[in-house]
């Protein structure tokens, strides 16, 4: 394997391929500001839930930095995300719409985001990725376990690269996001990938 591009993003800092980028504001406003400044051409972004916005903005920054044509249909790239809280932020928001019998207004627009893998679908749609999309939930950030999962996903012979994400979002003002573009070919083994993930996580 080889790590081609990497990004780490918390409410306090954003770094892309080792360079610090400026962020403004906090919470979801920080994601909106980044979207306006760095993306700007995908209004569906504003319909997404917190997890979707986080994953989308991070993937845009990372993929913009890849020296490759974008939006070309391809099946050889997988989107492989994981976290601890699944879609908990969206789940809580949807729960609020049904808790009170006198104020019961279940919304399909909120309900659809109560699945953590929606963010991987949003990224596949944006980038025309027909490859694998998957979401796994772990008990905690575990770099060895994530690296094993990534190494295992390369057993699909079609997959030549993976957009790997730890996209953890426990409420609208707290998140941890590591995103890596990992290619199949390269000297890095899964322990090396785990060590990189660990280093990135520690400096979040």
């Amino acid at each position: 394997m080889r790590i081609k591009k990497w990004l780490s993003f918390s409410p306090d800092s954003l770094s892309l391929n080792g360079e610090t980028l400026g962020v403004v504001g906090g919470g979801v406003e920080m994601l909106h500001e980044l979207y306006r400044r760095k993306v700007g051409d995908y209004p569906k972004f504003f319909k997404m839930d917190m997890l979707g916005k986080l994953g989308f903005v991070a993937s845009e920054l990372l993929l913009q930095s890849e020296d490759a044509p974008r939006f070309v249909p391809r099946e050889d790239r997988s989107v492989v995300f994981c976290n601890r809280s699944a879609s908990l932020v969206a789940d809580r928001r949807y729960q609020e719409t049904i808790s009170d019998a006198d104020n019961y207004y279940p919304s399909p627009a909120l309900f659809v985001y109560t699945l953590p893998n929606i963010v991987t679908g949003e990224i596949a749609i944006r980038n025309k990725y027909y490859g694998e999309t998957s979401f796994v939930v772990l008990e905690k950030f575990d770099p060895e376990q994530i690296a094993m999962h990534v190494a295992a996903a390369f057993q699909d012979p079609v997959c030549q690269s993976q957009l790997v994400g730890w996209t953890e979002c426990s409420d609208e003002s707290h998140w941890q996001c590591l995103m890596l573009l990992v290619e199949r070919e390269g000297e890095l083994d899964r322990h090396g990938l785990a060590a990189t993930l660990e280093r990135m996580f520690t400096s979040l």
């Binding site: 953590p116 893998n117 999309t133 979401f135 796994v136 008990e139």
Partner: peptide, 8 residues
Amino acid sequence: PPVVVSNA
């Protein structure tokens, strides 16, 4: 550590 797949 268990793996929980949550892919709809």
